Amino acid sequence: MKFIVAFAALLAVAVAVPIDDPRAAQITRYESDNIGTDGYKFAFETSDGTARQEAAEVKNLGTDHEAIAVRGSISWIAADGQQYSLNFIADENGFQPEGAHLPRA
């Protein structure tokens, strides 16, 4: 009887261990809208908790000051089990990231 209880406990622990191999993650959502030469947007989420979205537009199209402006965010679950997130803007003023550690429930 002790063997059955120990085996059941060991089996429960083995099943509860998450797969740490990011190559095993599956895409659960994917959206893409390439609107031509004046911008784009996309978003995706994966089964391992990674999510990313990004949108871009061309500013001052056809002028000497033409520039692409990109806004986006990415979040992921790190090896320490915590969720992290990074929001960013990349435009004529450079790359402007803003990060956060999000407590998990």
Rank of each mutant, 00 (worst) to 15 (best):
M1Q: 12
K2R: 12
K2T: 14
I4F: 06
I4D: 01
I4V: 14
V5D: 13
A6Q: 10
F7H: 02
F7G: 04
F7D: 01
L10F: 14
L11P: 07
L11F: 15
A12K: 01
V13N: 01
V13M: 09
A14S: 13
A16K: 09
V17C: 10
P18D: 03
D20K: 15
D20I: 14
P22F: 05
P22S: 03
R23K: 13
A24E: 12
A24C: 10
A24F: 04
A24P: 05
Q26W: 06
Q26P: 13
I27S: 05
I27E: 09
I27C: 10
T28N: 06
R29V: 11
R29I: 09
R29W: 11
S32D: 15
S32Q: 13
S32Y: 11
S32I: 12
D33C: 06
N34T: 09
G36R: 00
T37F: 07
T37E: 10
T37Y: 08
G39Y: 03
G39K: 03
G39C: 08
Y40H: 11
F42N: 02
F42K: 02
F44P: 02
E45C: 08
E45K: 05
S47T: 06
S47H: 04
D48W: 03
D48S: 07
A51Y: 11
A51V: 08
R52G: 08
R52W: 09
Q53S: 09
Q53T: 11
E54A: 07
E57Y: 08
E57L: 07
V58L: 06
V58C: 04
K59E: 04
N60L: 03
N60F: 02
L61R: 09
L61H: 09
T63C: 06
T63A: 05
H65F: 10
E66S: 07
E66D: 04
A67C: 11
A69W: 01
A69S: 14
A69T: 05
V70F: 01
V70I: 15
V70M: 05
R71L: 13
S73N: 14
S73F: 15
I74A: 15
W76T: 02
I77D: 00
A78Q: 05
A78R: 01
A78I: 11
A79T: 14
A79G: 11
A79H: 12
D80E: 08
D80T: 13
Q83G: 07
Q83I: 06
Q83D: 02
Q83F: 01
N87L: 11
N87R: 09
A90W: 03
G94H: 00
Q96T: 06
E98L: 11
E98W: 02
G99F: 08
A100Q: 13
A100W: 02
P103R: 07
R104S: 14
A105R: 15
A105G: 15
